[in-house]
Simulated assay, not measured.
Amino acid sequence: MPATLPVPIRFRLPDGWLPVRPEPGDGWAAAPDVAFAAVHPRPDAGFSANITIDGEIPVDAATLADLADDSVDHLREIARSVSVAARREVGSAEAPALTQRLTFSAVSGGVRRDLAQSQVYLSLTDVVDPHKRAVVRLALTATAAQHDAVLADFQEFLRTVRPDTGTEA
């Protein structure tokens, strides 16, 4: 059963990407908190690049870097050779964000694969109580060979992500 996000968001998938239901046992066991997933229509060597969305309400002291570190630690529990290839803080003081790119080796479909994952952490303030915040993580996972080819689609997707206030048509 997919998880739910702590705040509603709106987005548009890039052309051709297909939404999927992330069910445990269907290759999504490593991502039990995924609220939404989509796959690229052209797998690379049997692996489908995917976009996933999950989120949480972090403890007050947790920074986006802390959450990104936690994600790396979690990935190290299920994958080999996890490396942070790049990380940077982006956004503004009102809407902070963090991006990181991870490389790792993991078994998928019974085959060990070299994978890359681009993650974006968005900090969203509660419109009713500005002292509360939620963090939404958007991730692109692809084979190392296909990652750069689908990165533009992921960036296009990121440009469409917005809080869903329920007031827009």
Rank of each mutant, 00 (worst) to 15 (best):
S123R: 14
D60C: 07
Q117N: 06
R21A: 15
T103I: 04
S118G: 09
P96L: 05
A139I: 05
L13G: 01
A134M: 01
Q117V: 08
L140V: 07
S92G: 05
R112Y: 08
V136S: 12
P2F: 04
A86M: 08
A97G: 05
L64Y: 08
W17E: 04
T103K: 06
A37I: 03
D129V: 07
V34P: 01
A149R: 12
D148G: 06
V120S: 03
P163Y: 03
R42H: 15
A152C: 00
P130H: 09
T141M: 04
E77R: 09
E156F: 07
S83N: 10
R159I: 00
D60R: 14
L102M: 11
T4A: 12
A85I: 14
T167R: 15
F47G: 04
Q119P: 01
A30F: 10
V34S: 12
L64N: 14
L75C: 03
T160Y: 11
L5I: 01
S83A: 08
V59A: 14
A62Y: 05
A106N: 04
V161E: 12
V59C: 05
A68H: 03
A30S: 09
T167Q: 15
A144S: 12
S105H: 10
R101C: 02
R10D: 05
R133D: 08
A144V: 01
D44N: 13
T125L: 11
A30T: 12
S48I: 03
G25R: 07
A149Q: 11
W17A: 01
P14C: 10
H40D: 14
P6Q: 08
S105Y: 01
V107C: 04
I78N: 02
N50E: 07
V127F: 13
D164Q: 08
P22Y: 03
E23P: 00
Q117L: 13
W28E: 07
R42D: 15
P22N: 04
L98A: 06
P130M: 03
